[in-house]
Nucleic acid binder design. Sequence first.
RNA 1: GCGAGAGUGGCGGAACUGGGAGACGCACUGGACUUAGGAUCCAGCUCUGGAAACAGAGUGGGAGUUCGAAUCUCCCCUCUCGCACCA
Length: 778
Amino acid sequence: AENAAIDNNTHPAAWTYQNIDYMRSQLKRMGFSYDWDREIATCTPEYYRWEQWLFLRMYEKGMAYRKESFVNWCESCQTVLANEQVENGLCWRCGKEVRQKKLRQWFFKITDFAEELLVYCDRLPGWPEKVITMQKNWIGKSIGAEIRFPVEGSEKSISVFTTRQDTLFGATFMCLAPEHPMTLELSRGTPREGDVDRFVERMSRLDRSDKAVELYEKEGVFIGAWCINPLSGRRIPIFTANFALMEYGTGAVMSVPAHDQRDLDFARKYDLDVIVVVSPKDQDLDEKTMTEAFTGEGIMVNSGFFNGMESKKALEEIAAYLEEKGIGKKTVRFRLRDWGISRQRYWGAPIPMIFCNTCGIVPVRDEDLPIILPEEANLLEGGKSPLPVLDSFLKTSCPKCGNPDARRETDTMDTFVESSWYFERYCSPRCNSGMFEKKDVDYWMPVDQYIGGIEHAILHLLYSRYYTRVLNAFGLVECKEPFTRLLTQGMVCKETTSCPRHGFLFPGETRTEEENRICTKCGSNLILGRVEKMSKSKKNVIDPNTLLDKYGADTTRLFCLFAAPPERDLEWSEQGVEGGFRFINRLWRLTSGWIRHIRDVNPYTGSATELEGEVRTLYKKIHQTIAKVTQDIEERFHFNTAISAVMELVNAMSGIKPDPEEPEKRAVMRFALETVVTLLSPIVPHVAEELWETLGKGESILLTGWPSYRRDALDQDDLLVVVQVNGKLRSRFSIASDAGDEEIKARAMDDERVKGFIGKNPVKKVILVKKKLVNIVI
RNA sequence: GCGAGAGUGGCGGAACUGGGAGACGCACUGGACUUAGGAUCCAGCUCUGGAAACAGAGUGGGAGUUCGAAUCUCCCCUCUCGCACCA
């Protein structure tokens, strides 16, 4: 809710009512309380109640579960850090070393819906292509095989997942994730035990997801055990390596150095065998010297009875063979992982679970909901949650056995959970008998048009799609997809400024003195940072009130909408705001000037053929403008070009002078003014309302319909035809719009300038684009 | 490193499907009206050459497809967003 309601990352076009008091009243109306001074927004207890209620239902069905996984952990802050909060392996807040820690946390089983979420990507035609692509890549379906490699001298086997089972004969070693249970197990008692222990220990300290790590070399250690390649029978060494991830696949990788670059680098480093099993058609690979793995398709070699087969075919054949022999099976894997919703934070809905010494994990009873946040809590240093040390919250009795020594789960839910169903709650905000009234939600949902920043292209949008499916599975909503059409706004960016002593500064905390930007608090010279998306933490935000005070809301709106199309990133600049202000004033003067001539005149809405000269041209222009503005707004939200079109129309109107002898002129002008005001009414509502009244309308412009255009008035009387010679523009002429192709061609060939360029060269070809262009090829 | 976008005059941007590059606006320059202009109106405004007519070049760089490319393909550069070394 915090993010949805007040967010300065949003495009300025979203400042429809950028007025703090208005926002506050809206928040209050929606049931939120907002403490502006502490920058804290809290959900109503009702919202917590129903979110926790659904969590319990999901827990009952196994859709919410608790498991152990690795997180970035800062011992000094006692907090989990997101990857971007780790800089070079150090905590961004305290600068101390970050290590990998095993933590038991709660997860939602989003992977159950991976296939559906993927398939439905293609049923979202109203979404931008790029977002669909990103979601598909994120879900990441891959089809391959799971293969078991027997461990030498043991009953056990190691399972690997691969998409390249065609290269199985080329697997010359195995890599296990350091966290893989078999890593330590198999090394135990071997001469390698000590080295492996040290490696695993070292890996657990490193932040394995930080981008700096990617620059590190691939490294690993032999664990002193061997396994058998189930197809070739080859005895292959088992390593543990830093690039093998427990979270993906099975945590074990079969390494085929000839056909995977990473494996090849590793093999060269540790002097391991390379066997080519797919031979490219146009080159020979030398196993001894090759430095680039061959990852394409080719012909199978060194692969027993699959030799000579196309590798593409072998992919299928080997999978089938493995299945038949019981060594492996065809498998589908998704890149998508379950959604970890636990946060060790104060803000968020508490996860309604209780730990009892005798009963274990016990869910809170429905009648005890909501579990709300204790208000007496103080935020601890470094953003650490106060809940685990707050007895009034922590201590409770077990709902099952009554044991008074039970304690509550102190993890709270990811705020992405809240933002995954707020739109459903908005459909039914006052419901207190459930999450929402089904009939209300079924009436409104799905959202016809959703608008949000491009930064949400994956997480928020995918979580919302998932959560809606969960609600659907419980029969709470009919729809399966929450958003029919999606518009992703670009980022509004601005340079950051920081002071060596005070950190990031708001623009208002800086001033310019003798061409130096300095801090108003201490006078230090500022460090100018790069241009980044506006954010509260970086303080590179602007206050729209400056513009509102100087120009008013209409100019501010017009300016913001005119600046760029909404999906585009934008570096904030107030250059150009004057233009919008002047335009509104020009329209105002134009209306005031004409009003005495058109006061009692009815707008002309007839056919264009009845009109002549400049009036006829203007009349057509009006209809063309209606068409353009309607299309720009309705189809693409391109307010900037819609506004340009209206500006063009107003420019054309300015050139027309009142004439008492011409009643048509006055009637057309009346139509023009009414049209312009209506077209602008969503953009500059206050001025539009005033002008509407000036035009003698008794009713609010809000009650007026959107103008429609006459199809017969859209066509130009004359066409402008462009003539090219060999693709270069050489001449142009206008011709009646009903002229035929042959007539246009003849006219082009006859053009004096064109003749000059053709000279004595023979004409090879004449290309005609209907009513637009002639290209003469010589 | 991976995934997804973007790059057009001094600036914001326009050109929807391959067909007039620079609409509309800002800034700037000149002029008109003015005691004045920070109001308004008129004109100019991609670069190079030219008094002009006009010619040539030009949409991040390089190649290609095409009668024709800002638009399509390949390689490279820069910026932005997201990220989990994805077997």
